[in-house]
Design a protein around this nucleic acid. Structure first.
Length: 318
RNA sequence: GGGUCGGUACCGAAGUGGUCAAACGGGGGAGACUGUAAAUCUCCUGGCUCACGCCUUCGAAGGUUCGAUCCCUUCCCGACCCA
């Protein structure tokens, strides 16, 4: 079976992915799918640096599938999908993303366009493009609450009893992983390894990575955060905070949680803003760790090189 | 001019005779990652070294001591108080 050519634009936050995505889409008749765990939330615009443009009804695109009530955003003639899929009090997981993106890719291909994945959420890319199976075990809130009351050591012990292999494989210092592993093993009765496999993927992916010197990247991040504050992030965060509280998944995002601390008088504004900058830099670092580990990424420093790289790739996929 | 409290690694901040290259936090660096992923977790962070170890550090200079980040003296700097 012939594989579907796909472009994946990866890189840390503030590295210029958005612009490259648009330019590539224009140059190669593509549509963009945002691979971002935060811009899926409606109403979170400034703090997520969500693409801004004209929102148009999905029906104009003759889409075949529609998992979410979404409105793609069109910027400079380029449609962006995967944005504004859920409300901030809803959960959105990798599995949701994977399912959504797979259907969206066939939509785009069905329209004769080139799918261009743009984003910074490493796990989402891996799940979609490396074919992670993502077992059918959905998060069990009650079980998680129960497990959360236990110490990390106790959790590790519990997993050791249920699935020794898993216990020796996963990071036993990481409660969150421990809980998920126990969740899977307990509800399926099968070892974790049986539930976590890799399947073939029908895509032929070209990874384009945005390479920015570290100092430059950090300077851009600081500027961007300052611009967000100047651009109304505080008001945006406040209204979300008032509507959804500080504990929702969406509010755990950088920018929002630090401002929530400010609203609760736990942090002076000045410190909250500085915190946002630090946390964003750390986040960028983690993203870099993820993408640097992928040997398939073609690193570029500008739009022109990105286009050249894609052109070469496309030429072997008539 | 007098007095008090301080000056510790990139920053903040413990330490108060040996067990101190010096707790802890921040920052910085590296890494992990299969349904919270902008989340969560791990390691490193004076120099040389794979390591044992060696070397140089705790404002400066002297001194006491077998031994000083820690005690004494003087000086420099900072904060506050009294004049």
């Amino acid at each position: 079976m012939k594989k579907i050519p796909i472009i994946a634009v990866v890189g840390p936050t503030a590295s210029g992915k958005t612009e490259v995505g648009i330019r590539l889409a224009q140059a190669f008749d593509g549509e963009v799918i945002c691979v971002d765990s935060r811009t899926v939330y409606r109403g979170m615009n400034i703090g997520t640096a969500k693409i801004q443009g004209k929102q148009i009804p999905e029906t104009e695109f003759l889409t075949i599938h529609s998992l979410f009530a979404e409105k793609p955003i069109v910027v400079d003639g380029v449609a962006h999908w995967g944005v504004d899929l859920v409300d901030p009090d809803e959960a959105f997981t990798v599995a949701d993303f994977k399912e959504y993106a797979e259907k969206k890719i066939s939509d785009i291909v069905g329209r004769g366009k080139l799918p261009i994945l743009v984003g910074g959420t490493g796990l989402y890319f891996r799940a979609l493009l490396d074919g992670l199976t993502l077992t059918d075990v959905e998060p069990d809130v009650a079980l998680r609450n129960e497990l959360d009351a236990m110490s990390t050591e106790a959790l590790a012990e519990m997993l050791g009893a249920l699935d020794p292999d898993a216990a020796s494989t996963i990071d036993v210092d990481n409660r969150r992983r421990l809980v998920r592993a126990i969740e899977i093993v307990r509800t399926t009765g099968e070892p974790l390894a049986a539930r976590q496999q890799i399947h073939d993927v029908p895509y032929d992916v070209l990874y384009v990575g945005m390479d920015v010197e570290r100092d430059e990247l950090y300077a851009r991040i600081d500027e961007r955060v300052a611009a967000m504050i100047g651009g109304g992030l505080i008001d945006e965060a406040r209204s979300l905070y008032e509507k959804y509280g500080s504990t929702s998944q969406a509010m755990s995002g950088i920018g929002y949680r630090q401002l929530a601390a400010f609203f609760e008088n736990k942090l002076p504004l000045r410190d909250a803003v500085e915190r946002i900058q630090f946390d964003t830099r750390h986040y960028a670092k983690r993203q870099l760790t993820w993408f640097k580990a992928n040997p398939r990424v073609h690193w570029v420093t500008n739009v022109k090189d990105a286009i050249a790289t894609v052109r070469k790739f496309i030429s072997v996929h008539p």
